[in-house]
Amino acid sequence: PCQLAMLRKAQEFFQTCDAEGKGFIAKRDMQRLHKELPLSLEELEDVFDALDADGNGFLTPEEFTTGFSHFFFSQSNP
């Protein structure tokens, strides 16, 4: 159940970042969040690079979910 909750949240956040519904997140999608989140462009770029495991410049739902799951389970299991 915990994993299901995590997957739902990851999907929800992915859609927040991928507002156009392309199926991937590009760096400019991440930079667009600058208006909505209290993070600087530099921080958002760091987030993107941290999530972009293969470094191809696009975040897939799998990469996003992997990054989110690390955060999610580190929060729920201190």
């Binding site: 949240k9 956040f13 989140l37 209290p38 921080e43 958002l44 987030v47 690390h70 929060q75």
Partner: peptide
């Protein structure tokens, strides 16, 4: 160890990012 430091930093920015998204969704900072 620079690698460990980089890992900890990216963990920090990710935590910050996801917490911001959570706050945005729930409306509670």
């Amino acid at each position: 160890d620079p690698n460990m430091k980089a890992g900890a930093t990216s963990e920090g920015v990710l935590a910050n990012f996801f917490n911001s998204l959570l706050s945005k969704k729930t409306g509670t900072p």
